[in-house]
Design a protein around this nucleic acid. Structure first.
Lengths: 150, 150
DNA sequence: GAGAATTGTTAGCACCATCTAACATATTGC
DNA sequence: GCAATATGTTAGATGGTGCTAACAATTCTC
């Protein structure tokens, strides 16, 4: 990830293009975080509800195959979000737990916001899942305020 | 892309897990469409504003390198969204143009909605970029209604 | 506790998106 | 119109996410 040199002289609409490029880079960064966030959020939920998070359950809830989960868990472990032992279930590190909390909070705010807008629960859940990773702190604050006002 | 067999018997919370899995599969599908949508939207804009869409400008605005653009354009051409000749700039097919229109419409609705919520323009633009690909038709309708009401 | 069923891992494939380096083509400016 | 500059392509690497098939470990059941 080397990034783009911002010191290139272009046409008259440099500023707009730069802003745009920044926005896209933000989106790309969000995209690479998304999956990790989905995982830790789900793992926290499984541990809370079932006492443990097993790859097979993670796979079922994400709609992917178990080997895919294994591989992604390897990455999360590498990144310090979870710990695990071979053939055992998964635990969150402090960092993972913090991320999960943060994600859950965002998810709930977005969900409540969509519901307060009058969306049906099923669509709201679906859209919240997609939207939650792309909402800035500022927007989130507005969503929260709006939802509690209505 | 083989998908998951839905005929597996699980615990008591099958229903919830299945819904969740569906939601995630939707998000994944959206993710794989995202980049194509960003490209056609941008290409349409460049053609409109500058008369043509050159890889170098696309790259500048997306914040990626030119070879990355070349490769992605190959995919878009394969998918029938654009046409191009070697060392020449890019054109949208009818299908590409339709998609671009659709994307632009969604983008604008999301953007206006965020602005009407009181978000500053810069953050609104940034967040719209991320959110627009994850908004269902229903949610979009609500956004549009809300924005025009305020 | 042994055999069956379930769960988890490994290996190997495919595809996508990103990069740099090297090369090919167009465009521009004199 | 030629040389310099700008733009575009190809090749090859990296790393992510998905799959299936084959194998390993654990858990369940009798």
């Amino acid at each position: 990830m080397t990034g783009i040199d911002p010191k290139n002289r272009m046409g008259t609409d440099d500023r707009a293009a730069d802003l745009r490029a920044e926005a896209f880079q933000g989106v790309r960064a969000a995209r690479s975080r998304e999956l990790a966030e989905d995982y830790v959020e789900l793992i926290a939920e499984l541990i809370h509800d079932h006492g443990e998070a097993r790859p097979v359950d993670i796979a079922a809830r994400l709609g992917v195959r178990v080997p895919t989960v294994t591989k992604t868990l390897d990455r999360l472990a590498r990144e310090g979000l979870i710990t695990r032992a071979r053939y055992r279930s998964v635990f969150l590190t402090d960092e993972g737990r913090a991320l999960a909390r943060e994600c859950r909070r965002r998810h709930e705010i977005v969900l409540r916001f969509l519901l307060s807008l009058g969306l049906d629960p099923e669509t709201a859940e679906r859209d919240a899942e997609g939207i939650e990773h792309h909402v800035s702190a500022r927007t989130l604050a507005l969503f929260a305020a709006f939802a509690s006002k209505s």
